[in-house]
Design a protein around this nucleic acid. Structure first.
Lengths: 247, 247
DNA sequence: CGATATCTTGATTATGCTCAACGACAGTGG
DNA sequence: CCACTGTCGTTGAGCATAATCAAGATATCG
């Protein structure tokens, strides 16, 4: 019955940043008691969970909103160790829909469970708050690229961000090659381009020998050069925990 | 010596959403003990406050990052009642710069003061957390407009967002006319257009009799029509507080 | 009042969009 | 095992929106 700590991506991710007390770990494990599985490439019907948040236990999924009949905005890509729904915690009605990219296992828990964390662990609260704010910074980075960068640079930045996130969220050792199960259409809807432009951009990046992409994987050939080219900052690698409560 | 509650935009804004206990109010008032003033249209030098956050007591300012020599991305507009710097709380180094739009009074307080709130008031913590997440939703709305909407719609959406925010942040009764001290260049840098395009877009909106803009004010002529046109949602008006801790 | 910042308007250019057709591939069922 | 289907990625032609460059008009500040 005891959950192995190593099984929880969320706990591993939290541990990446701070030391967790046994109490903190129990609090987090409590959130992953239940599991629900979803098949690949399905729209999630979460009407059974109107006031729940979800921890991603395995698989990729993304949230989006429709704009008109043919266009949509992909808001966020979710990886194992993410908490899905935090962004919407203040909303009375859901404002986004979800789709799975691969087979996915989610752990639903009610919003009100956040209370217990807020009440029992100021230190964990500070970390969750910080990670939420960090997501905002990542969003601002994306906004910046959308507004000002050309297609190829947007795509390169998008891939670098995914690589940086995978490194913290999973046991990824940081290899040059990593999984990219998203279709070009989804990437386009995320960074504001059409699938056609994504295709052209990737081919241009390949021609310049900066990266290559085949069969749902991406290989970064010269990470430093690429980072410099798009002014990429890894927001996940290190955060400021110096001000956290000590308890 | 006693601060009048009504003097604090932040407390007023918080009160808009939940009832504050006397302890909560003291916690918040503690944050506004110090004041620093800045002149209009200045770049803020905050190197004296490397680990501080700021409550905006009066005036408008904005944060931005430079992209290249000639372009920058305006990240956020800050109004009275905002907490500036929350987004960067997890960053070890500042990632944005600030400029005042009008004369501004800020109340600086150290990051670590957030601890006291986390430790002493889970209810206030829940509210601050929710408002942070709400900012993310607003950011996602903006991202959506940037990626998919044409110039005029972006500008209209931007104005509607400001109007909605002013209503909650200040004692603004929701008049059709409101202050808009930002230059067209700043607006452009915020929503990813050049000053030229902003000018054209505003003139088109005026020609269509949807709004008018003169001398640093904007008047919305048909708010409902405009909201429908750009699919605007007011994220500030009402938030879900049902799950908050009661104490 | 002069100096500067801001806004307006026009001509030209460029990037990405739309529309469209084709090829590669995976999954399905006969 | 193979034809069938649908998704996904590639490539090309023409088009549209906003960028750039530039000059003139207006407003604002000291």
């Amino acid at each position: 019955m005891a959950i192995n700590f190593a099984d929880s991506c969320l706990i591993n991710r939290m541990r990446y940043y701070i030391e967790l007390s046994p109490d903190d770990e129990s609090l987090l494990m409590e959130l992953e008691k239940d599991e629900v599985s979803f098949r690949s490439r399905r729209r999630l019907n979460l009407s059974n969970y109107p006031t729940h948040l979800f921890i991603v236990k395995s698989g990729w999924l993304y949230s989006y909103t429709d704009l008109d009949e043919k266009r949509r905005q992909v808001l966020r890509i979710h990886y194992p160790g993410d908490v899905v729904g935090l962004t919407e915690i203040a909303m009375q009605e859901p404002f986004s829909e979800m789709r799975t990219v691969s087979d996915v296992v989610l752990c639903p828990f009610p919003k009100s469970r956040m209370d217990e964390i807020f009440i029992q662990s100021p230190r964990l609260t500070a970390l969750i708050f910080s990670l939420g704010m960090l997501d905002q910074v990542v969003l601002l980075d994306r906004l910046k690229m959308m507004n000002r960068a050309h297609a190829a640079n947007r795509v390169a930045h998008f891939f670098l961000e995914i690589k940086a996130r995978l490194k913290v969220h999973t046991a990824d050792p940081g290899n040059a090659t990593f999984d990219m199960p998203l279709t070009q259409e989804v990437i386009g809807d995320a960074i504001g381009l059409t699938n056609v432009s994504i295709s052209n951009a990737i081919r241009r990046l390949e021609a310049d020998n900066l990266l290559s992409s085949e069969r749902k994987t991406v290989t970064i050939h010269d990470e430093e050069k690429l980072k410099a080219m798009v002014d990429f900052q890894d927001r996940h690698f290190k955060i400021d925990t110096s001000w956290f409560p000590h308890k």
